[in-house]
Amino acid sequence: MTDALKRLSDEGVAIWLDDLSRHKISSGHLGELIDEHHVVGITTNPTIFQKAISSDEKYDQQVSDLAARGVTVDEALRMITAADVRDAADVMRPVYEATGGKDGRVSIEVDPRLAHNTKATVAEARQLAWLVDRPNAFIKIPATKNGLPAITETVGKGISVNVTLIFSLDRYREVIDAYLSGLEKAKSLGMDLSTIHSVASFFVSRVDTEIDKRLDAVGTDEARELKSKSAVANARLAYQAYEEVFGSADGSVEPSERWQTLERAGANGQRPLWASTGVKDPSLPDTLYVTELVAPNTVNTMPEATLRAVGDHGEITGDTVRASYADAKAVLDAVGKLGISYDDVVQVLEDEGVEKFEASWNELLASTEAELKRLTPKEA
């Protein structure tokens, strides 16, 4: 099963798991995925934690203790999720050490209700970094307009960041700029840049979901021919934007002077991370957003079902990105010619993404509150 996953890893794609629970950690299942299935990182989100906390009795003792102390639901939520991320980071620590900090990472997200509040996002990022207290933790910050300066400030304080919720090419370029600005700030303060890492999470499947819906509304043969092609095209052009700044792995594309200056000072590049890689359309191959996005120095974070599908029948044929820039641009141009606005699509996706994150967070708060009530000790 692991041959395809090994080939994927050998091509320079870091395989991360988009899932975490206390059961996965304590049962040894996470360790098995690391040892046998080439998993070298973990991402989390409110939906993942909501499912775990509401269905796993392994949280009961901690929740009962928190209830006995009378903590607020917000504080309880942070203590519970930070404990999971801390324990997972400890399991991942050998990978972190073996890769010089590049992988072995576990991500925890700032409160998505702060997505449009720069100062609060920075404060939350600092609090989470302190609370988890592991060098291989990533703090997830959404790439909203107000999130961009928060990324710069957080990186400038020496905190490693997973920038999430990126849909557009322009916003991705702004994310790269925010990261470099943060490194420059950290450098001016005399920090060791080699200790700061980052990934930029570029969302994939949702782009097809939104554009395909609009193509269906157009209804022509040309529109139908373009279905399920936009997400991969968008991600491939994002990788082209990555190479324009950080250079190519084979040296054929020179890095920017700005990046070269930071790299000489010990800085680490910000890898593109393909997120939302489970297919939403059951008619599509279940490995589509993995096999079509193979390129050096990338991360693909997958639900376990997608991970196992790739291991079982994924066809890894080498780099499927760098020779396809012209075709990718042609796809998005053709979509635009049908009257579908790229700018509108990515703005809708960002707005909906923030709303979905907030809704998931509120569900997570509600689940945590219910568990606190259920496990509150009875008075003697």
Rank of each mutant, 00 (worst) to 15 (best):
S367N: 14
G266I: 13
A76E: 12
Y59E: 00
I48F: 14
N362M: 14
G353I: 01
A120Q: 14
D111F: 05
D18G: 05
A334V: 10
S198T: 14
E315K: 14
K51L: 14
P149H: 03
K356P: 02
D343S: 14
V279E: 07
P135L: 14
F49R: 05
L33P: 08
V40P: 01
E355I: 08
D56V: 00
D133M: 06
L332Q: 03
E174D: 15
K58C: 00
N45D: 01
M1H: 13
E225A: 15
S55C: 01
L226E: 05
M92F: 14
T298M: 07
N268D: 05
V85T: 06
S205N: 07
V253N: 06
A380F: 13
V335N: 03
K51V: 14
A235G: 03
D56C: 00
T306D: 04
S341P: 10
H29T: 11
K213W: 08
A238V: 09
K185C: 00
R236H: 04
P296H: 08
S9Y: 09
F138N: 06
T118L: 07
D19C: 01
T376G: 00
P135C: 11
A98E: 14
K337A: 09
A238P: 05
A4N: 10
S54E: 15
T320S: 15
S194E: 14
L332P: 04
K329W: 10
S54C: 03
E304G: 00
R22P: 06
T47W: 06
L284T: 11
P285T: 03
S248W: 13
A186I: 13
P135W: 12
V310C: 02
T220D: 02
V73C: 04
L372G: 02
T2W: 07
S64D: 11
A200L: 13
D65Y: 10
A326D: 15
A178D: 07
S252L: 02
V354L: 03
I141K: 05
I159M: 12
